[in-house]
Design a protein around this nucleic acid. Structure first.
Lengths: 217, 217
DNA sequence: TATCTTATTGACCGGCCGGCCAGTTAGCGT
DNA sequence: ACGCTAACTGGCCGGCCGGTCAATAAGATA
């Protein structure tokens, strides 16, 4: 009864449902996030994945289902990264700096995440990823409240606003980035500017959020 | 020879190209920005405008041309509002506060502008509106540099970063708003929260940007 | 080996969408 | 009054897209 299900991983299996699913997902993610869901024909996803269009329907049902799967999968990474940033960093205001830098690096390394966020903003349908994200928000707000009670962060500001400030500063850079290097010449020195921007953003936000009495290092 | 071109504005002209163009543009703007360009059939634009589909092609050429026209037109308003905010406000740091509040109010009153910005971020094609916007950026940066030289704003931060900080804080709220009231119940008290957010954002940004020596009012 | 499951295929359908075209009519100049 | 230009119409076409279905064969089970 004990099934020896995968007893031939050595030779290339001619049928490999999981690999097929993975290939479709990968192709779909790439295309959906660059062309947009509406402008991405399933046929093209299939071609890129080296599969027939019918297989997409076989494995995922409909195009919308596939899109939801991509979103949820992608949000997994995003969610993990965020959570680690929020929990790993040690106390007080350092956490905020680490969060901002960490989030910034994450977006830097995952351009898809930026486009994904943009699509979420634009689409109207329900968002399956929301509860997990809210939980994340709650986690961050809690840590901020602690710092407020400890006198490290100013208490006259809603924690949610602080979080949004950090998210906004990081995300906005990458959202507007394609608009910028479009006019800045091919790649003049946008990367150097990017580092400078991060440094400045840290300065602004930390000083704007720190308790008035605390004198910086 | 002096043409009396428009000598019958009183009785309803049965043919009125300009009015037709305007009707099409208005319908297109509404639909494009809510459904997205890809999900908006020209037939539906035509129906909404009370016109035949053919007329769209007659007046605008192609669907893409119409979309570009909408973008450019919409940017007009956006551009005007921004420019007025930047130039009208009197000296120093008050300008920044006024800019943020003004921009925030503008987005509040023009939900379309938010979606428009999001589409600009996502689309890849050239952006016809860019030069005017850059001019606006330059204007703002100049005023910030003056304040930096005058010792009112800290000088260790790139002016562009300051501008982006203000834009990001305002825009991000409205971008993420639909995601928020989706989980917050129908309309719990999102508007009250909105005002609170604006106040907090002003606090964070102004304190983060003000010169270290200047003691606030 | 015989059998059952299911991954995989290719052909096909109904529908919609963008664009075109031939024809009609309103307004404006002469 | 006449004719020209351009606004406007209805109808149609070619193409693509999402989805279905019957048929095939690979792999697991026994």
């Amino acid at each position: 009864m004990a099934s020896a299900k995968k007893n031939l991983p050595e030779s290339r299996r001619r049928r490999d449902p999981e690999a097929t699913r993975a290939a479709i997902l990968e192709a779909a993610e790439e295309l959906f996030l660059t062309l947009g869901p509406a402008d991405t024909p399933t046929s093209r996803i299939a071609r890129r994945a080296g599969v027939t269009k019918s297989l997409i329907h076989h494995h995922f049902g409909s195009k919308d289902d596939l899109w939801n799967e991509v979103k949820q999968r992608h949000f997994g990474q995003y969610y993990e990264a965020q959570r680690e940033i929020l929990t790993s960093s040690r106390g007080s205001t350092d956490m905020l700096k680490d969060s901002l830098v960490g989030y910034f690096r994450f977006l830097q390394d995952n351009p898809h995440a930026v486009r994904y966020m943009s699509w979420r903003f634009i689409e109207e349908g329900e968002d399956h990823c929301k509860p997990e994200e809210d939980q994340l928000f709650e986690l961050g707000a809690e840590r901020i409240r602690e710092a407020q009670d400890g006198g490290e962060l100013r208490a006259d500001i809603e924690p949610v606003t602080m979080i949004k400030a950090f998210l906004a500063m990081a995300l906005h850079w990458f959202q507007s980035k394609p608009l910028m290097d479009q006019i800045l010449g091919p790649e003049e020195d946008l990367d150097a500017l990017e580092e400078r921007y991060l440094e400045d953003a840290v300065k602004i936000l930390l000083d704007g959020v720190r308790s008035r009495r605390a004198t910086a290092d």
